[in-house]
Structure formats: C-alpha cells, structure tokens
Design a binder for these strands. Sequence first.
DNA 1: CGCTGAAACCTTTTT
DNA 2: GGTTTCAGCG
Length: 730
Amino acid sequence: MINLDRLNSQQKEAVITTEGPVLVVAGAGSGKTLVLTYRIAYLISLGIPPSSILALTFTNKAASEMKERIRNLVGKKADYIYMGTFHSIFARILRQEAHLIGYSRDYSIYDTDDQENVIKGILKDFNISENHLSPRFIQNVISKAKNKLLFKDNGFEKFFGSYNKKLLEIFEEYNRRLKNSNAMDFDDLLIKPIELFSNNPDLLEEYRDRFHYILVDEYQDTNTAQYHLLKMLVNKNKNICCVGDDAQSIYKWRGAEVRNILDFHKDFPDTKIIRLEQNYRSTKSILAVADSVIKNNVYQIEKTLWTSNEEGDRVKVTVCFDEKDEANFVAKKIFELTNTKKINPRDIAILYRTNAQSRNFEETLIKSSIPYVIVGGVEFYKRKEVKDVLAYLKLLVNPKDDESFLRVVNFPSRGIGDVSIETLRSFALQKEKPLFLSIPDLLNSDKVSERIKRNFGAFHSLITKYQSLIDSNDFYVIINSLIDEIGILQTFKEEGTEEAMQRYENVVQLLNSIQEFQIANPDKTLIDYLSEISLIADIDNWEDRKNAIVLMTLHSAKGLEFDVVFIVGCEEGLLPLKRDGDVEDIEEERRLFYVGCTRAKKHLFISYARNRNRFGNSYPQIQSRFIEEIDKTLVDFEATPLAEIYLKKNSNYRSITTDEYSQVDPFENYEYSQVTRQIKPGSIVEHDVFGKGRVIYLDGYGDHQKVIVEFKNGVRKHLMVKYAKLKVIK
DNA sequence: CGCTGAAACCTTTTT
DNA sequence: GGTTTCAGCG
Ligand SMILES: Nc1ncnc2c1ncn2[C@@H]1O[C@H](COP(=O)(O)OP(=O)(O)OP(=O)(O)O)[C@@H](O)[C@H]1O
C-alpha cells in the first residue's frame, strides 16, 4: 500500500473512493493533478492490473510527467498504464482496428495545413472563389461539425446550412477525399472510434472489459466527441474519475464544452463530488489577486480557495511606454531576480496572449544575454522542408496519401508542374483511385506525351523501390539513403544562402530525431514515428532541463507552475483579445487571465504598454479591464521611467520628443558599429539593462565580437557586441 | 516549368 | 514590420 500522508483529507477521499463515478471540481493549485497521480498509484498498489487503467491527459507532456511520478511510487508497473492524450490513445486504437471502418493501419494523419490544402483543391474543383469562402473558415466549420458530432442527417444543416448551402457539399467531398487518401484529421481520431464502436458492439464490449478504471484530467476542456467516447467506454461499474476546474476552461473556441463538467452528475448518477479547497501553490497575495478578477465571471461554480502559504510579495502592475519598453522592464526584472534573489532562470515564465508577442521579448533577451526558450510559434515539424521530407515518408507507408504525394512529386523539382498533375488527375478521377496509384494507368496510355511519362515513371520507381525496403526495422538507414538519392541536402548546401543552410540543419535535425526514435523504441515502426510526431503539442517539446526562462502563450501554460510569472500585454484588445468583426468572449478571456495568474508560486508581475506596434504602426493602448478588476488594495502600481514621462505630459504618443526618449533610453538609435571600434579591455561601458560595467575580456571582431563585462554587483556577463548595444563611456 | 519581385495578408489561442 | 502568395517573364 502506498503512503498517502502527503495528502489532505479531501484529497485522500478522492484517491481512495475508487469505485463509482467521482468528480473532483476544484480551483487552481489545489492538487487535482496530484490526486490523479496518487489515485492511479493507489489502484495499482491494490493489485489492479495497470493495463486496465485508462488515463487521459491534456498534453503528452502531462502524461509523461504523471507516468514518471507514478513510476516513482509503484515502480515499473506504471509503464503498462494506458496513458496519453485522447488523440494519441485513440490513434493507437484506430491503427489496430482500422480495417473495420475501411481504413488500413498505415493511415496518415492530416494536420490543419493538410486539411486546408484539401479544401483548396475542392474549392477549385467546385469553382468556388476562396474570397467567398476561405479555406480557413471551412476548416473551422468542418472541425466544429465533427467535434460536435453534427453529420448530414444529424444537425449539420441546422447548424451551418443556413450559412451556405455549399458547405455541406464541401464537407462531404472533404470526407470522401480523406477516406480515399486513407487519411484522418485530428477530429477523425475522436469520431472514428465512435463510429467503430457503434458499428461493432462486440469490439466495444472488449474495450469496456479492458478499461476498468477511467481517469480524465482537465475535464473542463473536453469536447462533445470526447464526452461521447467516455460515455461509451465506461462499463457497468462506472469507475470514472474526472478532475477539472470550470474557471480554467479556455478551449471553447476549439469545441470544448463546460457542460461536460457542469452536468457530470447528471450523466453519471450517484456521482461523488469532491471539492478541494486548499491551494498549495501560490502566496496569499497572488491568490487574492486571481480571485478578485475571476469573481467577475457570472457563469461559474462557486468555489472556495484558501492557502496557508505566506502572504508573499505584493503583485506588481507596471505600465510601460511601448512594447520595447515592456521588454526592457521584464529583462531588467529578470536580471534582478536571478542575481539578487538567486532565482533560477528555469523558474521564470513570460506569458502572453498571442505567439506574435514573443519576438519582441526575444530580441531584448538576446541583447541582455538572458538564456530563454520559446514554446510554440512556428513549430519544427511545420517547417516546409521538414514537412516535405515527412511527406516522402508518409507516401512510402501510405501510397494513397494524395496530400503527401502532391507535396513531394515535384520536390526537388522534377519538371512535374500543374499541367502534368492535371493529366494525372484525370486518370485518377476516371477510376476513383488515389493519384500515386494512378501513375501506372498514365504510363500505359498512348495519349500522354513521352516527357510527362518519363517524369512520372522515374518518380514512381523511386518510391516503389523504397516502399519495399521501408517495412524493415532499420528504417533510419533506408530513409537516409532516400534523402541521399533525392539530393536535397546537397541542393541546400549548394544554394549556400543562410536560409538554405537553416533548411539543411532542419533536415539533419529531423533525421537525427528519426534515429533517436528508432534507438529508443527498437520495436516501433515508421508508422508509429509518424503518428507520434503528428500529435506532438508545442509544450511537449519543452525541455525544462535547460536552465532558461521560458516564453509561451497563456494557453500553453495551463497546468504548469513557476516561481515567477510575467503576464505581459494586458491591454484592451490584446488581453482580452478582440478581432475585428468578432464578438469577444470576455468570460473566457478572463479565465485565461486567471489561469495565467494562478501559475505563479511566489512573484507575479502584470504589465501593459501605452503604445503598441502593430503592422509597423504604433497605436495607443488602454489598460486591460482585468487590471481594473483587481482589488486595488492588493497590488502596487508603478511606471517605467519612459512611461513616467509620458504620464507626466498626460498627452499622446507623438508628443514625446526624441530628446526625452533618448534621455531615458540613450541606446535606441545607437550605431553599434561605432561601439565595435572603440571598445577595448578596461573600457567602462553602459548596458541598457545591466547598467554600467567594466570590460574584462574581448574576443573576436566584427559581428562575432564577444566581451565579458563585469557589472556593478560583480556579476559577469558574456555579451555579443553586435547585440548588446553597449555605450562606451570611457 | 521555374524564378523573381510586387502585392497582399497578417495575429488568436492548438490536439 | 515581416511573411506568404501570385502574376509575369525568361
Ligand atoms: N497535500 C499537498 N501537500 C503539499 N503540496 C501539495 C499538496 N497537494 C498539492 N500540492 C502541490 O501543489 C501544487 C499544485 O498541484 P497540482 O498541479 O496537482 O494542482 P492542480 O489542481 O492540478 O492545479 P491546476 O488546476 O492549476 O492545474 C503542486 O506543486 C503540488 O505538488
């Protein structure tokens, strides 16, 4: 039996009430995830086979962390738990049972880009202008329809039909094309299992029999499809335990239904509802601030949340002049915290509403030589060259995959352009076959030019050659020789530009990741590899082993905790975010702000800028209503020196003179080349974040020149002269 | 068919 | 301001 002494009495109750439906609704930091972890460990210690436990988490990262903790409690048995995201667990089940719904086990997974490409193809064939119905919009409609389980004779038209009659036709053609390509999109991974189980009751019984205990984390952000899956899978014992916090539901835009948590007790009669009320994460100050904001939401379950943690530092709200000033303020604070308070960079997070905000901070952090990592943004696996290589691999395992075929058939360039593709497409349409499989028909026809035949013929034999080899367990070697044969690395190298070299690096990195996967999972196949990387979330790639501060969206921060949190860009229009023509969902935005605040353990900084650059123009900004809502007695307001000038003048942006600007920020327009000439060991220099210091070491020249500077408090910094904007004083 | 420069678009949030 | 798309030319 495992030791539950660490837990409080409600937490214990949630752990040991193993039979029947249990719902844990509780505020942030009350130990919901910890309860799930202990509950699973407890079940295993009771002798329940780990393979009969199904645990669903929100991200892969959350799953692997939980598994690790359980392993620490009960040992290796933890490896046999069915644990992962809804998508990854059901993708795995679908591979097993694909034949029952007309797919094969090597089906491709289409991401949002692939979906949009399919849609673009349909619009073209249907003669619908993209201006009229944008592919992005249609992709949204299709995703909504699927995750809300709306089909042709089941509400689709009621929901979308009035908008545009064509939508249903496009929807059905889209599904036809994916099926034809042996491909599933993200939503299919949830609704195909429903179809599978509905049509095969015996199979459903098998799975019900297998999963005796079902557990779900972050239940407030499950969608209708996930909800139906759960209802199907729960067996007569009804051993389902869901944990969540309605105040942290932030994925409505993607189909999440808070009703799932609100009506849980109706869906599962005799539910035991357990509330956790003690927060173990944050200081009293932070919790009070979060609470004063979230209580402005009308629709929520009443919850109490208290902490016995210390009062802690008061939360700071800082007004900055513009986004550069904000970045400087944050960098300065981080410098202070890591040096004087000895806080580790890895315990600090900068959270923002949109990925686009990261760049500004990135620039300043480089200049300040503060180590950082960015979670999300332009994902590695979404880069063009990476997707192109992956498309080769997808086509090898799934030759029906039209989308991958179209990506690679002319990459690298083989003289196969639009005209050739259209010719092939006409053959494909005739026999309703996928494109790649129609190549033999084209080759046998006497109506096609020799040149086109030659080009397709060469491509066809290339792919078939590797297809026969790829099933082997040593797929890395095969892929390597394929890459070699098509010569893309060489092409990038010959191009020689900085951009091409970056591409080169990315492809090499992809190959490395394939090799690592193969070594780490000797009995897994290329199909498994492709499946796993399709379902990777941004946050899954975050290596918290690195001692670097982390930048991410508020969404990605869900479920995490940090000693220090900066919530930046708290301005009307940005947080809460408002897009032209869209009705904003203020309550959801407020929950997002709440999630952000409650990530902080010890220090919380909230900031906003009076002016913000968008598309090259500066716009005046208004402080976020969420700041207004904070109980004023709980926070300290302050202004950066630049904002101070602005406030004093009580006027608008334009009236700040260049003089005043440079008075406070003398480096703004400073030519660093001048600095490069003058700087030498012993020089006294000034840095806009660290202040004055003495150069103790100088190395290299030009863009690569590096210095070590000792600043006031004896802290030594390694800086790149090019970026550090040092002003030489003496 | 492929490259280049101009124009258009852009910013939600992600499995 | 930066990135992606697209038309027009070689
Ligand atoms: N009984 C306890 N004693 C000490 N620490 C605890 C206890 N319960 C939880 N904690 C700690 O509190 C922190 C928050 O726990 P956890 O992440 O499980 O909360 P949560 O309810 O899932 O939070 P959120 O809803 O914000 O994701 C963790 O660091 C955890 O170790």
